Each structure stands twice: as structure tokens, then as C-alpha cells.
Deep mutational scan, measured.
Amino acid sequence: PREAYIVTIEKGKPGQTVTWYQLRADHPKPDSLISEHPTAQEAMDAKKRYED
């Protein structure tokens, strides 16, 4: 089974940042970016789909 994890990042100019959620996995390479999402819920949904 595949495993993934969610990383929170800040995008934008200082003082005007927006939080994004990255879905990452250690396949095919360590810390590979799988997808980016504007909400934590979307990231969790993507994580479930990826791991299923």
C-alpha cells in the first residue's frame, strides 16, 4: 500500500501569504510532490484516494 503525508506551506509575498497543502510521498523518490491543494479537506481527500 502507498503512503502519503501532508505538508503545509505558505505561498505569496510576506504579509500576504496564503496557506496551501501539499500531498507528498516517498515514491518514486523521497519527498516527491504528488499534488497541491488550497484546503486541508481537499488534501485529506487526495491522500485517501492516493493511499487506496
Rank of each mutant, 00 (worst) to 15 (best):
P1A: 13
Q41A: 13
E36M: 06
A46R: 02
K48R: 12
R49A: 14
Q16W: 10
M44Y: 12
I6P: 00
E51C: 07
K47Q: 08
L23N: 01
P38M: 12
R24W: 15
P38I: 10
Y50Q: 02
Y5C: 05
W20D: 02
K48G: 06
R49L: 10
P38N: 07
E10Q: 14
K11V: 10
W20F: 08
E51Q: 12
R24P: 02
E10A: 09
S32K: 12
A25S: 15
S35L: 00
D45S: 09
P1M: 13
T17P: 07
P38L: 12
A46G: 03
Y50L: 07
K29V: 14
G12H: 06
K47M: 10
Q16M: 13
Y21V: 01
K29P: 15
D26I: 07
P28V: 07
A4P: 11
P38A: 14
P28G: 07
P28N: 08
G12P: 03
Q41W: 11
D31H: 13
E51M: 13
K13N: 12
E3R: 15
G15Q: 05
W20H: 05
D26Y: 08
R49V: 13
D31R: 11
A43M: 01
G12T: 05
I9S: 04
K29C: 14
D45A: 13
H27K: 11
Q41G: 08
K13P: 15
E3K: 15
I6M: 04
E36P: 00
P14N: 13
K11R: 12
P14H: 10
P30E: 08
L23H: 00
M44G: 05
E42C: 06
D45F: 08
P30V: 12
Q22F: 02
D45K: 11
H27T: 11
K47A: 06
S32H: 15
T17N: 07
Q22T: 03
T8G: 05
D31W: 14
E3H: 15
P14Y: 11
A43Q: 01
K48P: 00
K13D: 13
L23A: 01
G12M: 04
P30C: 11
V7H: 05
K48A: 12
T39G: 03
P28L: 12
G15C: 06
Q22V: 04
G15P: 15
K48F: 09
M44P: 00
T19Q: 07
S32P: 02
Q22H: 03
V18L: 08
A40W: 15
T39I: 03
H27R: 09
L33F: 11
A40N: 10
T8M: 14
D26T: 10
H37S: 01
D52L: 14
K11Q: 06
R24C: 12
A25N: 06
K47T: 01
M44C: 11
Y5Q: 04
E36G: 02
D26P: 13
A40D: 05
L33Y: 05
I6N: 00
P14V: 10
P1G: 13
D52Q: 15
I9R: 04
H37L: 02
D31M: 11
I34R: 02
Y21K: 00
A4V: 12
I34L: 08
I9Y: 07
K48C: 08
A40F: 15
E42V: 03
R49N: 09
R49T: 08
T17F: 10
T17V: 09
A43S: 02
T39C: 05
K48V: 10
H27Y: 15
T39R: 04
P1C: 13
K13A: 13
P38G: 08
K29G: 09
I9W: 03
A46L: 01
H27G: 06
Y5V: 05
M44E: 14
E51F: 06
E42Q: 09
P1S: 13
V7D: 02
S35Q: 01
H37V: 01
L33E: 02
E36C: 11
S32A: 07
R49I: 11
T39S: 11
Y5E: 02
K13V: 13
K13G: 13
D45T: 08
G15L: 05
H37E: 01
T17K: 13
K11S: 05
D45N: 10
K11T: 06
A43R: 00
Q16N: 13
E51G: 06
W20Q: 03
A43I: 01
A4F: 14
T39H: 04
T19K: 11
K48I: 11
I34W: 02
E42N: 04
V7A: 05
A40C: 15
A25E: 04
D31F: 15
S32R: 15
T8H: 06
W20V: 09
L23V: 13
G12W: 04
V18Y: 09
P28M: 07
Q16D: 12
P38W: 06
K13S: 15
H37R: 00
L33N: 02
E10F: 09
L33T: 05
A43P: 01
Y50S: 02
V7K: 08
D31Q: 10
K29I: 14
P38C: 10
R2M: 10
A25I: 14
A4M: 09
R24V: 10
A46F: 04
I34F: 02
S35Y: 01
E42L: 09
S32G: 05
Q41R: 10
K47W: 07
E42S: 09
T8V: 13
D52H: 12
W20E: 04
A25G: 08
K29H: 14
R2D: 06
M44N: 10
P1D: 09
W20M: 07
A40V: 15
E3W: 15
W20K: 04
T8F: 07
P28W: 06
Y21P: 03
M44L: 14
P38E: 11
